[in-house]
Amino acid sequence: MNRDLDALLDVAVGLAHRAGRLQLERRAALVVQGAKAHANDLVSDVDLASEQLLVDGLLRACPDDGLLGEEGTSRAGTTGWSWVIDPLDGTRNYISGTGPWSVSIALQEGDSTRLGVVHDPVAGETFTAVAAHPPRLGGHAVTARRATRLTEALAGVSYNPSPATKQRIGPVLATLLPRVGDVRRLPAALELAYLAVGRLDVGVVIGTHPWDVAAGLFLASQAGLVLTGPDGEATPELTICAAPQLWDDFAAVLAETDLLS
């Protein structure tokens, strides 16, 4: 089935902006609905409303497509195309007012992602990519400025804050911090978007889910970054990412940890 990816990108961007506006408008009055997988995995009424907004809009545009969303949406579809959405990636930041969050939307044909959108409502920034084209920021081409030495690099780190994953990330941070310029912790979608446009130089993502990373991994891959994970493939459970000129040094540092063992 042929698809007008540019037209569908416009749909996804429009919906991401609408969800972002809803999140900004309702933030002061949000209601925490409880925890999901663990005490740090929170969900609010705004997460649920945002997912419903995205689902309704995507089904209007593509009524027979599949859908997979963080807050419970799961629909097989009949076209071979599926939308993977995280309506509010970074809920803990959103609820606590301590950092950024984003709306993340990806469209996949089978197992291959064809477009990705990551929208930051507070900064008003939208990172996008479609198949065979490099990422764009706000609709404009990006000229990435990247470090050439690991000691000057900004490293991004994203991880599911479950007790088990926090234990796993501790030794990685201890190994990484002395060897890079500095470290930033971000929600997964924004970390990967920042890597794609050169705001970060290297990154690690641990213990996430498909909706957290589908759009961001596509942005990073379209930017020409090196991506790997278990058995050489980036996955939601583990993604290691770096600008090509830093890959060898970054991989050597991470080889001192048990990440890939």
Rank of each mutant, 00 (worst) to 15 (best):
P230Q: 04
T91C: 05
T235L: 00
E191T: 12
R184E: 15
L177K: 13
G156C: 11
R26F: 02
R136M: 14
D258W: 00
G207I: 04
D65N: 04
V84S: 02
V32P: 00
T128N: 09
D47H: 02
L88Y: 07
L58C: 05
R136K: 15
L24G: 11
R184W: 13
A123T: 15
L5N: 11
I169M: 13
T78S: 14
L192I: 08
S221R: 10
V157Q: 07
A106I: 11
P135M: 08
D258M: 00
V204Y: 01
E25C: 03
D4R: 07
V84T: 10
D182T: 13
R179S: 15
F127I: 12
A76P: 09
R146G: 13
L115Y: 09
S96P: 00
E109Q: 15
N160T: 15
I206Q: 02
T208Q: 12
E256D: 15
P210T: 13
L115W: 07
E237W: 02
T239K: 00
G156T: 14
A234L: 05
L176I: 14
H133T: 14
A16I: 03
E125I: 09
A49R: 02
K166E: 15
H133D: 14
A251Y: 06
G181I: 10
A19T: 12
P187G: 10
A255I: 00
P171N: 13
A189Q: 03
K166W: 06
T78K: 03
S44M: 04
V11E: 08
P244L: 03
P100E: 14
W101E: 11
V202T: 07
D65M: 01
D86G: 06
V204D: 01
D258E: 12
V253L: 01
S102M: 10
V31S: 05
A243H: 08
T98L: 07
P100D: 14
V204M: 00
L154S: 13
V103M: 00
W101V: 10
A252T: 14
D65E: 11
G72I: 11
V31C: 01
P236L: 02
R149E: 15
A214C: 09
V180P: 03
D258Y: 00
D47F: 03
G139A: 13
L42M: 08
T165F: 01
E256K: 03
R184C: 12
T98D: 13
A215V: 06
V183D: 06
G170L: 12
E71F: 04
K36C: 05
A153K: 06
L260S: 08
A12M: 05
T126K: 06
A251F: 03
E51H: 05
V103T: 10
I169T: 12
Q245P: 00
Q23C: 06
L15S: 10
A16E: 09
N93V: 09
A132G: 08
V180E: 04
R3W: 09
T91M: 04
R149M: 14
